[in-house]
């Protein structure tokens, strides 16, 4: 528990952990927002969510390998993943979207295995990073170090999130998406082509995951088996914040980023994964127990 003492005796280290955590949390919030979008509009819990992030990361990696600035990878990954999401909707999700939630759960589970293994086959299981060429800046007499790329990731995540929000509120398609989320039957009666809405929603979700993934690849690391942890994190955030609650998603996302960083600092980075999975179970059980006291349950 020495590490806990360090945190209290050295406020700068405390600050460092918080700053890093929040910068990371912005990416988590982005991915979680996409998940909430699909869940709310299509009533599908997309198990392949993390794989979209992973795919976005490999787009950035390809850019870096080709000698291009990976910064361009963010818009590129967004566009490419949008297409991937759109195609996967028509190939797979389309058939299960109106069925029981367990069917779509299994279908997207199969999808996640498929995507993960394809990337594993093509790029091998190596852990990699896309070099952005950006440097770190120091503050407070060199005691607080902030990587520029992390700040950039944070800013870009905020921009992507902002664009999405404006799109949902202002554009016709955005309004159709929100109407479908409210009541898909009524939306259909009003002449909204819900299949089109679903396809665009699934594509949009994949797109923001792709952008997030490109940022992840530049800022942290990427490997084919990365997906599950992002799925679990975004699920956790959505469960805490609730569907259709953007401020909640942002707060929960940043909070989770910080909490995870603290856990990594206190218990050691090798237990970070175990921490995430245990936290998920604890949060689910706790939320359900709280609701149970009001005679409700998570649904």
């Amino acid at each position: 528990m020495d590490n806990v003492l360090i945190l209290f005796n050295q406020p700068v280290i405390f600050l460092q952990v918080v700053v890093d955590g929040i910068l990371f949390g912005s990416i988590l919030a982005l991915v979680a927002y996409g998940m909430a979008l699909v869940w709310g509009v299509m009533k599908v819990i997309n198990i392949a969510q993390g794989e979209f992030v992973m795919l976005g990361g490999y787009v950035a990696l390809k850019f870096a390998d080709a000698g291009l600035s990976p910064l361009w990878a963010v818009p590129a990954a967004t566009v490419i993943l949008f297409c991937v999401g759109w195609i996967l909707y028509w190939l797979v999700v389309h058939w299960v979207v109106d069925k029981d939630i367990f069917i779509s759960l299994l279908a997207t589970f199969g999808l996640s295995i498929f995507l993960q293994q394809i990337v594993n086959q093509i790029f091998s299981a190596d852990v990699r990073t896309a070099e952005s060429g950006l440097v770190s800046r120091s503050f407070l007499d060199d005691r607080l170090v902030v990587a520029e790329i992390k700040v950039l990731a944070f800013v870009l995540a905020a921009i992507v999130g902002g664009i999405l929000w404006v799109f949902l509120v202002r554009s016709r398609l955005g309004q159709a998406i929100r109407a479908t989320a409210q009541n898909s039957r009524a939306a259909r009666l009003m002449g909204i082509d819900t299949n089109h809405v679903y396809a665009m929603t699934f594509g949009l979700n994949a797109a923001i995951c792709g952008g997030a993934g490109a940022l992840v690849a530049m800022t942290w690391v990427i490997h084919p088996y990365l997906g599950l942890s992002y799925l679990v994190r975004s699920f956790m955030i959505v469960v805490v914040a609730g569907l259709g609650n953007l401020p909640g998603v942002i707060v929960a996302g940043l909070g989770l980023g910080a909490a995870e960083n603290f856990a990594g600092f206190v218990f050691g980075a090798e237990y970070q994964a175990a921490f995430i999975f245990s936290l998920l179970v604890v949060i689910l059980v706790w939320r359900n127990w709280r609701l149970g006291r009001q005679r409700r349950y998570l649904k």
């Binding site: 819990i45 198990i47 939630i101 367990f102 759960l105 599950l228 799925l231 679990v232 699920f235 469960v239 994964a273 175990a274 995430i276 999975f277 245990s278 998920l280 179970v281 689910l284 059980v285 359900n288 127990w289 149970g292 349950y297 998570l298 649904k299």
Partner: peptide, 21 residues
């Protein structure tokens, strides 16, 4: 006794990390 108070879809996700953990 903890996790199965949850409904199916939540339980499913909660089990995802179990094998990995």
């Amino acid at each position: 006794s903890g996790m199965l108070g949850l409904r199916g879809q939540y339980f499913a996700i909660a089990t995802l990390g179990l094998g990995i953990a």
